[in-house]
Amino acid sequence: MSLITLTSDFGTKDHFVGAVKGAIYSELSDAKIVDITHEISPFNITETAYILKNSYKSFPKGTIHIVGVDSELSEENKHIALELDGHFFVCPDNGIISMIALEIKPTKIVEINIHDRVESSFPVLDVFVQVACFIARGGNLTVIGKEIEEFKTNVEIQPKVDHEQNQITGGIVYIDNYGNVITNISKKMFHEVGKGRNFKINARKHSFSKIFAKYNEVASNSTYSHQQYEGHKLALFNSAEFLEIAIYRSNLDTVGGASSLLGLAYRDTVTVDFINEPE
């Protein structure tokens, strides 16, 4: 049985997701299809990269991941298939894969070349499904494309380190369902650069000098009820080990989330300044 995941910005109102699943079942009747999400913001490569990085490892090795975001074929936007960390990805070469590949390099990458046999305005259906099913049958990547050495990187995903200024400059790459704001600053980078020093996190007019281990630590004073802490802002490293700015027990219908309450949006700059102790 083949395990194939789908990640896209198609939404669920239209026929696109159903058509892709139908095409897969027509090729592989025993396939197992898992929807990671179809609610990616339209054409948002950075958001796609974040979600893909933090979901693919939960699947068994050999899983095939079809990624349909900004997938229309052009000279600048080729289609690729690759093997990475024991998984296979079929996706556009638009930087989507670069967050996963920051630390783990692909074993093999090919530029898909079956387009001369298929003309399509819906490549996920007409091209990506064919490639995914071919891989699921045990096909070699080099049969469906020419092997290449490089793929496009997304510089927006990578924060910058200024060692002279003792500063990390990152940005907001994702806003989750609770309105929590996730940056591209990893826990690993924070500790490598900070080396245990005091720090100040700056996001617009808001600042933080403490990072909590979990959300409810902000309500650690037993004198008060948890309800009295609702709406408090905090910084922490989330389960994906990226720096996150959150509102304790946020409710988008009542209290609001960090994005709305703090005025933080996708692509906003977030900096971490490390403070040297006086000699």
Rank of each mutant, 00 (worst) to 15 (best):
E277F: 11
Y50T: 00
I100M: 12
L252R: 13
H15T: 06
P278T: 09
D126G: 04
Q228W: 12
S220Q: 11
S186H: 02
V110Q: 10
E279N: 13
Q158F: 03
N54W: 05
Y174C: 11
N216Q: 08
I40N: 07
N216T: 06
I175P: 03
E150Y: 12
K205G: 08
N251V: 01
D126T: 05
N198W: 06
N251Q: 10
I172A: 04
I45H: 06
S260A: 15
K53S: 14
V181E: 08
D9N: 08
L252Q: 11
I172Q: 01
V193K: 07
S209Q: 15
T107E: 14
I247S: 09
N94Q: 03
D176A: 08
M189N: 07
L264H: 00
F10E: 03
S207A: 12
K214R: 12
K57T: 10
I157W: 01
P92T: 06
Y266C: 12
G139Q: 11
H115L: 14
S55W: 11
G145N: 07
S239H: 09
A265T: 08
A132L: 02
D176C: 09
G194S: 01
F59T: 02
H115A: 15
S121Q: 12
I24P: 04
L28E: 03
V69M: 02
I201K: 02
K108A: 08
G95K: 02
E76S: 12
I100W: 15
D253V: 06
S98H: 01
F274N: 00
F88A: 01
N77G: 05
H87I: 00
E72P: 01
S260G: 13
S239L: 07
A265F: 13
A240N: 13
K21H: 10
D116V: 11
I64G: 05
S220P: 00
A235R: 00
V90K: 01
M1A: 13
F128I: 01
E39M: 13
I40W: 07
A235Y: 07
A246Y: 01
D268G: 11
I211H: 01
I135G: 02
Q227N: 10
F16S: 11
T153Y: 10
C91Y: 13
V143C: 09
E156P: 12
N251M: 10
N140P: 07
G145W: 11
D70L: 14
S41Q: 11
K210N: 13
K233V: 08
L52M: 14
S26A: 11
E76Q: 12
F151V: 05
D35E: 04
T223H: 11
V181P: 08
H15Y: 10
K210S: 13
H226S: 14
A19T: 08
G256H: 03
D176P: 04
R267N: 15
E277D: 13
E279Y: 12
E244T: 08
L261Y: 05
V129T: 14
A81K: 03
K188F: 00
F274M: 00
N221C: 07
I104Q: 10
E27V: 09
T153F: 05
F43T: 10
S74A: 13
T153I: 06
K205H: 13
A240L: 05
G68K: 04
L141K: 05
G263H: 04
E150R: 14
A265P: 06
I172D: 03
S260W: 00
D30Y: 04
H15C: 06
N238S: 05
I144D: 06
E103P: 07
A132C: 02
D116F: 05
G95W: 02
N44M: 01
H38P: 00
